[in-house]
């Protein structure tokens, strides 16, 4: 029955897309970036923004979408649903920015507030503020780690490589790779504590 096969196809495409993002598939993520950046940039440029602001806002939105998919808070039905979601988050972030202190005294305030109340729900899906702050502290601390630790933690936790592959990649024993990883995590933890 044609109807059934279409449903099955949609389901498999949805599952594939989510899995690819959760597995940090570079090609899927890159095409998601490429397909949506210029549209968002155009929106921001025609709404009082600059090229640099467009990049910053889009990157924030891109990371927020990734976080939500990783955390199963957003399950896209297909690629276009994901594109729409990314674009809406970027638009919300830009409208939030326009409503920040710099813009509060202008006439446009009321219009923007009206738009925000309709779309704020998506933002609420992202981590609770307290958790987000803690995660962002780790993100800042990670940037201060040495290159060796960054690379090791990256293959462990971003690429999800097996201990065996990692030991081969770094030319060390599995026990040594595990110890090094432990020390890197401890370094990171110390950096986070120092920043508080």
């Amino acid at each position: 029955m044609p109807e059934k096969s279409t449903l099955q196809k949609d389901y498999s495409s949805q599952e594939k897309l989510v899995k690819s993002i959760q597995a940090n598939d570079d090609s899927v993520l890159k095409s998601l970036y490429n397909d949506n950046f210029y549209k968002t940039e155009q929106y921001i440029l025609t709404n009082s923004g600059s090229v640099d602001e467009a990049k910053d806002i889009f990157q924030e939105a891109f990371v927020a979408v990734w976080e939500n998919v990783q955390d199963n808070k957003f399950v896209p039905k297909n690629e276009s649903a994901l594109n729409g979601y990314l674009y809406t988050i970027a638009k919300n972030k830009w409208l939030n920015h326009l409503n920040s202190v710099r813009y509060r005294k202008t006439n446009s305030f009321e219009n923007h507030v009206q738009t925000l109340t309709n779309t704020n729900t998506i933002e609420n899906e992202i981590f609770k503020e307290e958790d987000t702050n803690k995660i962002n502290e780790v993100v800042s601390a990670f940037d201060s780690l040495g290159e060796a630790c960054k690379k090791l933690l990256s293959v462990f936790y971003y690429d999800n490589k097996s201990l065996r592959d990692i030991s081969k990649l770094f030319n060390v024993t599995e026990a040594s790779a595990r110890n090094k990883k432990y020390r890197c995590i401890e370094k990171l933890r110390t950096l986070v504590l120092k920043s508080n």
Binding site: Q70, V138, V139, F142, K150, S154, Y158, I185
Partner: peptide, 10 residues
């Protein structure tokens, strides 16, 4: 939190 932070930074 630490592990998610690592992944987010990357």
């Amino acid at each position: 939190t630490i592990l998610f932070g690592v992944r987010k930074a990357i």
